[in-house]
Amino acid sequence: MSVVQAMDLGLTFPAGDGDVVALKDVNLTIGKGEFVSFIGPSGCGKTTFLRAIADLEKPTSGTLSVNGQTPEEARRARAYGYVFQAAALYPWRTIEKNVALPLEIMGYGQAQQHERVRATLELVNLTGFEKKYPWQLSGGMQQRASIARALSFDADLLLMDEPFGALDEIVRDHLNSELLKLWDRTGKTICFVTHSIPEAVYLSTRIVVMSPRPGRVTDVIESTLPRERPLDIRETPEFLEIAARVRDGLRAGHSYEEEHV
């Protein structure tokens, strides 16, 4: 069963000096348990597509379904957890209270809240930091807390918008392998927006290459890498081959000379 299905999807932002076509004719089906990365230069519509799945933007043409429902129905059914570029933790809440925020809103009981917060903090290796405030944590730990917050209500779909974009490479490597383990353990479907080729290749079962003006899908690459991926898989010929294909796809879809016109 498909989790996300887009058919001839288009999304145009009206603007004073001509409309901006953020997405044009996007056709894509994402199956259950897949880890799909969206990669492309800025302005290619990768974040817009993720926000459309989350019902944070309204498509202007075509159809989009999430779990067989409209995006709005899926959002109301709390079908997904969303991780933003910034951790966006509430500074006045402790880590455990931040993770409990969706649970409070969705009306979980105290005991259940407590149990789920404990379990998800353990999942992202933040046990022991329950009573800390966000400012007492490093950027990487804050982003882990925000992932825990997205996981706490156990939605089957996880939407991640460049969650590690603001972090340094060492932390990023670490969180990438943590994320893979988490995906393996939970069996969730993950849509992951990035502009890093190694990150996309390392994490994904499928890589969607996008290009701007108008935002569209130019290539979809099935990964041949095994499910089990140690960090040093990134030096294997197979990995480099996929990375090269992604790079070619990006180059084909995007003529840099255009930028100066």
Binding site: G81, A88, L101
Partner: peptide, 21 residues
């Protein structure tokens, strides 16, 4: 910020919850 309001929207929070939380 917009990102914090978007976050509550993804939880389908009511206006009253947005206010108090």
């Amino acid at each position: 910020e917009a990102i914090q309001l978007d976050l509550l929207r993804t939880y389908d929070a009511s206006p009253v919850q947005v206010f108090w939380k």
